[in-house]
Nucleic acid binder design. Structure first.
Length: 685
DNA sequence: CTTCTATGTCATGCT
DNA sequence: TCAGCATGACATAGA
């Protein structure tokens, strides 16, 4: 699997984000020619894949208006090279069938997109192959100055259908493609295929009801599973390593993905070029203009009843764009839908919308002109997660939605941190509701924003800084943080009144309470620092903060946009964590010392017992020897006679052994006097 | 309610 | 000077 180069991760996050956003408006405004269907992979896969691709900030990605971009990196997954094109078998509808089979939504994109896809995702180093049929597909899509008819000439193996070329794996991987053409050509070709778009759209609609997609579904789903498995293996490999240890792996992956981009034109070059376009050219084109049929079709056939004409009449940013389709993403209960007017979405989210963030002409909902009901449902489910994660991550990083609840933070720090000196003035905090329903979550996010500024000194990260914030290369963080908050933070601390407002919330109230209880239990299991970090939305785990080398830690602090409070907390977490480990080691050592001393004591006691036994044995032997000597002494004296033949009294005489071995009988008086003389001599010496 | 144990944290000194 | 380590002392939760 090849990955999109993490082109915003190689420094200059602000610039890249700017490029990204600018590109967003331009891409949509360049949607004048709808002759290509760009594959949009399942959002969850996309998310994970982007995490794998570069380990860049989740917030940056959350702001990315192009979830489809990640799909470009999935070229080989979506289109295994082993599949041969079959131009004869309904080439015009093959792409649509395959797209349906993939269970992913697809959307008409620009000629530029087609060309870009080739440039970025071209499988071979020479850029001759790519997801969407490479330059042939691009050119066939009209992106490089060719018409639909030209495409068959440019890519003879793709069956002459640009969509077939776009979707055909072998077309993407095996055929000779024309070299990428210049950017000027791409832009120049941008205005040609309006008429073609309508034809393609009709074909698309017709193919939505094609019943021959089951085989493709199985085939592609197996391919997806395989790719997912491979991806999970990669993730697990990385997840087993700490961030700083996984850097090399990620870097190597990035290097690999870099090879993917070694085509005639890079994304950065292209984005720079796009930036040079007049800004007013980016405005004034609504989604309805771009997708006149697909939007209505998608809206009619799906459960989403959003008035897109109204929605896209606003200048909306990513938040707005996502929230504009709440039924697709957040709310799925029709009853709840009817009770919630649309306008509050726009109004409420305008609170959290920095005017500078607004993307003129960025109508992201247009990314999902859905195909079939099955595909649509699947994509909605997947996108539901993605959208929540994106939105939540965005607000997470900006400490907005439920995040940075000043009440919570202050309580945490007042409750827990009387010793650390970290406390927050909660006087200006207001009750911030954490919502269960996603709709309410949006409003909660807005409230959280306004709350935040007063509570914690207005931590209001610029999106460009957000891009800077999340520059982390461990995928675990993104996944954990993003989905953890999806699962956790929007479901507890729920105000009953907010929940009772809608039937949906009412029906989910019991479940929410269960989840809330569970999450509160989960929170209760967290350590103090973990709760603090969670309250302040420290984008790193406590374990990482503690275990990270000091150099990486300092680099991290310098590279990320963190408030003083967050930095202080992180340093405290690190200090306490280090000290905690040190204390544990110290106690272990102390325990080991005690155990060793106890062992030594036992050993010494055993030795003492042995010595005592030996001593007793020696004493016993000495006693025996004395007794034997005594008996021998008396036996000898009993046999001795003096000159008169009388027995020698052993009290007056002693036996004395001379040096030559002879035994003499010496009177005790001489012996005692001799001893005295020797003693005197010894003393004189 | 008291006691004991485990653990976290802080202060301090040292490297 | 800073970061980390070692350790005594204290606080606290839980058995």
């Amino acid at each position: 699997m090849k990955y999109l180069k993490p082109w915003w991760s190689d420094g200059g996050g602000l610039l890249h984000l700017t490029i990204l956003l600018s590109l967003a408006g331009l891409r949509l405004d360049l949607d004048l020619d709808l002759d290509l269907y760009l594959l949009l992979p399942p959002p969850t896969l996309l998310w994970d894949e982007l995490l794998l691709a570069g380990g860049r900030t989740s917030s940056a990605y959350a702001l990315s208006p192009f979830p489809a971009w990640g799909g470009w990196g999935r070229a080989e997954q979506l289109h295994p090279k082993g599949r041969e094109p079959d131009p004869a078998a309904d080439p015009e509808g093959r792409l649509l069938r395959e797209v349906r089979a993939l269970g992913v939504p697809f959307i008409p994109r620009t000629r530029v997109d087609a060309w870009l896809v080739h440039s970025v995702v071209a499988g071979d180093a020479d850029g001759a192959h790519g997801l969407l049929g490479a330059p042939a597909a691009a050119s066939s899509a009209g992106g490089v100055g060719s018409s639909l008819e030209d495409s068959s000439q440019a890519a003879p193996g793709d069956g002459g259908d640009p969509r077939a070329a776009a979707s055909s794996p072998s077309a993407a991987g095996e055929e000779e493609k024309a070299p990428a053409e210049s950017t000027a050509q791409v832009l120049e070709a941008g205005g040609r295929a309006n008429q073609e778009n309508e034809v393609l759209r009709e074909r698309h609609e017709a193919m939505c009801h094609n019943s021959q997609n089951e085989e493709n579904e199985q085939r592609v789903s197996s391919a997806q599973e395989k790719s997912l498995q491979q991806k999970n293996e990669d993730e697990s490999k990385i997840a087993d390593k700490p961030d700083w240890e996984a850097e090399k792996t990620t870097q190597s992956r990035n290097e690999r993905s870099l090879n993917v981009t070694e085509t005639a034109f890079s994304l950065d070059d292209f984005s720079q070029m796009l930036l040079s376009q007049p800004e007013n050219s980016l405005e004034g084109i609504s989604l309805g203009d771009i997708f006149p049929g697909s939007i209505n079709d998608g809206m009619n056939s799906s459960t989403c009843n959003i008035n897109f004409s109204q929605a896209i009449s606003h200048d909306v940013n990513l938040h707005d764009a996502m929230l504009l389709c709440p039924d697709n993403t957040f709310r799925r209960e029709p009853t709840a839908r009817t009770s919630q007017p649309e306008e509050p979405f726009l109004q409420s989210n305008s609170h959290i919308t920095n005017p500078e963030q607004t993307l003129p002409g960025t109508h992201l909902t247009g990314f999902l002109p859905l195909v079939g009901n099955q595909t649509r449902n699947l994509s909605q489910d997947l996108l539901h997660d993605l959208d929540i994660s994106i939105f939540d991550e965005t607000n997470l990083m900006s400490l907005a939605t439920e995040g940075f609840d000043s009440m919570e933070v202050s309580q945490l720090f007042e409750e827990l941190d009387s010793d650390s000196g970290l406390s927050l003035n909660s006087s200006n905090s207001t009750s911030v509701t954490k919502y269960n329903s996603s709709c309410s979550m949006c409003e909660g996010g807005a409230t959280g924003y306004s709350d935040l500024e007063g509570a914690v000194g207005g931590y209001y990260p610029d999106p460009s800084k957000l891009c800077h914030v999340g520059r982390r290369n461990d995928s675990a963080f993104h996944g954990d943080l993003a989905f953890q908050h999806i699962q956790h933070n929007h479901t507890y601390h729920v105000e009953p009144g907010a929940l009772d407002s809608t039937p949906t919330s009412f029906s989910q109230h019991g479940k929410s309470q269960k989840i809330s209880k569970h999450l509160n239990d989960t929170d209760r299991n967290l350590s103090r620092d973990e709760r603090r970090a969670k309250a302040l939305h420290i984008p790193f785990s406590v374990d990482e903060i503690v275990r990270m080398p000091v150099e990486s830690f300092n680099n991290m602090l310098s590279r990320h946009y963190l408030t003083d409070l967050q930095v202080s907390l992180m340093r405290g977490i690190r200090r306490r964590g280090k000290n905690k480990v040190a204390a544990q080691n110290c106690r272990k050592r102390k325990l080991d010392i005690i155990l060793n001393l106890e062992d030594d004591l036992c050993n010494l006691q055993a030795k003492k017992e042995i010595l005592k036994r030996e001593r007793a044995q020696y004493n016993k032997a000495i006693t025996t020897m004395k007794q034997k000597l005594h008996h021998l002494y008396h036996s000898i004296f009993s046999r001795l006679r003096d000159d008169d033949g009388r027995p020698v009294n052993p009290n007056h005489y002693v036996l004395e052994c001379s040096q030559d071995g002879s035994v003499l009988i010496v009177p005790k008086e001489l012996v005692t006097s001799g001893h005295k003389k020797e003693n005197r001599k010894g003393k004189r010496k």
